[in-house]
Design a protein around this nucleic acid. Sequence first.
RNA 1: GCCGGUGUAGCUCAGUUGGCCAGAGCAGCUGAUUUGUAAUCAGCUGGUCGGGGGUUCGAAUCCCUCCACCGGCUCCA
Length: 648
Amino acid sequence: MINITLPDGSVRQYESGVSAMDIALSISEGLARNVLSADVNGETWDASRAITTDSNVKLNTWNDKAGKNTFWHSSAHLFAEALESAFPGAKFGIGPAIEAGFYYDVDLGDRALAPADLDKLEQKMLDLAREKNTFVRKDVGKAEAIAYFEEKGDEYKLELLEGLEDGKITFYTQGNFTDLCRGPHIPDTSPIKAVKLTNIAGAYWRGDEKRKMMTRVYGITFPKQKELTEYLEMIEEAKKRDHRKLGAELELFMFSEKVGSGLPLWLPKGTQLRERLQNYLREEQEKSGYQMVVTPHIGGKALYETSGHYAKYGADSFQPIKTPREGEEFLLKPMNCPHHCEIFAHKPRSYKELPLRIGEFGTVYRYEQAGELHGLSRVRGFTQDDAHIFCTVDQVKGEFLNVLELTTKVIKKMGFDNFTAQISLRDPATPEKYIGSDENWDAAEKAIIEATSEVDLITTTALGEAAFYGPKLDFMIKDALGRSWQLGTIQVDYNLPERFQLEYVGSDNKPHRPVMIHRAPFGSMERFISILIEHTAGKFPLWLTPDQYGMLPVSERLIDYCKTVETALKKYDIRGFIDDRNESLGRKIRDTELKRVPLMLIIGDKEAETGTVSVRRQGLGDIGTMTVAELAAYVQNEIDATEAQIEK
RNA sequence: GCCGGUGUAGCUCAGUUGGCCAGAGCAGCUGAUUUGUAAUCAGCUGGUCGGGGGUUCGAAUCCCUCCACCGGCUCCA
């Protein structure tokens, strides 16, 4: 008998060789029907695989991430089976599960896959799924595995086999398809009830552009048709919210071929939004002890030689700007840190000044590859909500706490409630890859871990993801559609203080090297706004939106009254515009609704006589007649409610 | 940067077996209308068909090349 420990801590006894499926059956038949795979001592296994030692077992269903992964990976095999039956002789690369669904890289030789083929393949997958074929795991020797794929003529699988150790190779077979695969898989194909092949794209074999371009087919599957429908609706909604589309419609920003790709031009509405956001961040940072600075958009080449960036990135960056005088060269600044280092270095610093927090909305330019550019999320010129904190090793933890508190607050204020972070540490196996002393690294890593554990923040830890110059923390948020986005970072840096020979005088009257912390909670204004647009679908919070109201007179003769209301609202810091076009009220409402202006103030003779406005809320409709003072209270109340939300 | 796709008016889109002056709706302008909770009516303006080169009697349509954008790949100090 062996002891099986379940996630709730309960321990049950079973015969050795029991499978996760058997365990599920012993609990309930319903559970057994839903089991897709099981985590056995932290490793995901087939539900049918025999367990022979005392183990911790967690049963994975569709509701678990691991369950979905198993489901989608098995779906990739099902796709491969369908593809092979339609295109005999197809060769297969890799076919993993991804965040949403799966893909499979295939080589069809001279044949091409057309979108019309996808419909047929989806149907074929459903037909095969209904056959309820079991996924059969088989251990194979390396020689046998090689013989199988040589016979099949699949050089990709042969190449994958080269990297695998004899004795650890497994095949999985379902129906007529056998694949080299570590597994695990779902018990059989029958739970796959809804299939959508979403996209065909090119992808290099092993991500190497010198190697063959394969055809990558993306797909997603579900145990219920309804879930597929919902997923497709979500994709549609995402398309509607695309910040590139909304940015153009709401006249927030534009691009010009003449100005250059990846260089956004901010239009008046977008500028209002962005400045309001910056002002808010600036105020919050000043409250947290930051001092704002402004530095130029270019810097002498020597600055980047000192920082080391020129050696590392110079060739792939915007090339130096030359002056009429011989030999002078400047670079567009790709980051603000060297400038801030110079600010630190401009006078002798005392330990009493630390932590010294230098902040800047610093515009930087990076020559991103042409194919990388994407709306506002990936651009060549952008503004970081940047700051550099110069402090002692002992102060690192406190500064992390300070930044975490600040970031949490501003992210909440923007209306995001799903906020997490990833801690990136050294890979302990390769200490030679990192600069800085072990003691400093240990202290900083410990400080980050402690700081994150002291605040209410869900974190994951990734070993080996640290930069060579220090550990870091990356912020992630989920938007209204459940999509994850990476925002900014906090990064400890031992490198630049060294390179710039930065020093402060300690209480011992001796020079010491400060630690530098880079931090940009949003990452960049551009990228953050792109996320905010998609999160809110262009319906920005009342405090932030460019126009809070549109005033819509029923007739042109009411424009004078509108102007008196406008003046009155200005006194309450409520902003908006008067739609004085000679158009019907219906037309004005429609246009204002589409512009996502939150409040429509409808002005007719009744309102003019009684000194009121009739208020319509975007997306909701008429919410009643108010005086200016009542409207001001309504607006203030909503803004205060946002603040109250943050305090929670 | 690589693979594939797309590029016609400010926007959304018609228009290719190569053939009269390249079309529509919306937007814009002008006029009429003075409007009560999601599009008032009429007239008018607007395009070197992404740029350049070529084939042809003739090119939006065929070829070459460059650019931009889209979907991926790789990359992201």
